[in-house]
Every structure is written in structure tokens, then in C-alpha cells.
């Protein structure tokens, strides 16, 4: 099903770039969530897809007997999901705090550190 996943990845990446280019922090955050998913799928798919065969070793053996799914990208993706969640949680809190302090979610209007040169 790799080509099908590729279509999903195409849509995910395009959508997340579109959202991350938005002027609103909240849409940016949505883009961040989607691009994490896209990245995980890219890594997962690059290791080839094997349906219905988790990388487990049967109780009586010391190695898998049949072809099982590639364990390496799975380990990588697991790590990536958790890290992505950490990033998301921090970004969310940052946006929340920015809103409570600055009363705006438009990042062009967040000018505390770099005030407009024309003084507006």
C-alpha cells in the first residue's frame, strides 16, 4: 500500500506547510501536529510495509521464523512520536501564554522584542 500512503503523505505535508505559513499561531500549531504525523509516516514507509506481521519472536525460538515487519523504523517512529508530543505540548503552552500576555494570536502583532520601526 506504499503508493496510497504516499498520497496521504503528499496531502499531509502540503496541508501542514500551508497551515504553518498562516498568520495565526493556532493554525501554525495544527500544522505542527500534522507535519509530525507526516514525518512519522515517511520514516515508517521508507522501511517498507509488511502487513500483519509484528516484529515479535515466538516463545520457543531465538529469532523470528518468518518475515516480520521492519523493527528499526518502528523504534525510530516511537521515539519521534514522543518527542513530537513534547514539542507540541511546549508550543501549545507557549501559544497559550502568549495569548494571556499579548492578547493576540497573530504572530505579526507580537512585537514585544522587536517593536515596529515606524512606531505603530
Amino acid at each position: 500500500m506504499e503508493p496510497l500512503i504516499a498520497i496521504a503523505i503528499w496531502a499531509l505535508v502540503s496541508a501542514s506547510v500551508w497551515l504553518m505559513l498562516s498568520g495565526t499561531m493556532l493554525r501554525y500549531l495544527f500544522g505542527l501536529i500534522l507535519i509530525s504525523n507526516a514525518a512519522n509516516l515517511v520514516i515508517f514507509t521508507s522501511g517498507r510495509l509488511t502487513e500483519g506481521a509484528p516484529p515479535l519472536i515466538p516463545g520457543s525460538e531465538s529469532a523470528p521464523l518468518t518475515v516480520v515487519a521492519n523493527a528499526l523504523p518502528q523504534a525510530l517512529v516511537l521515539t519521534a512520536i514522543v518527542i513530537g508530543f513534547g514539542l507540541f505540548a511546549f508550543a501549545l503552552v507557549l501559544i497559550f501564554r502568549a495569548w494571556t500576555e499579548l492578547k493576540t494570536l497573530e504572530h505579526d502583532e507580537m512585537r514585544l522584542a522587536e517593536p515596529r520601526e515606524d512606531g505603530k
Partner: peptide, 13 residues
């Protein structure tokens, strides 16, 4: 995306 993982042998993920 979780479903994709499930049917492709990645239950932990």
C-alpha cells in the same frame, strides 16, 4: 495514522 501502524505490523507504535 494509528490504523496504518496497526495493519502494518506495528502495534506498539
Amino acid at each position: 495514522v494509528a490504523l496504518v501502524f496497526i495493519i502494518n505490523g506495528a502495534p506498539d507504535v
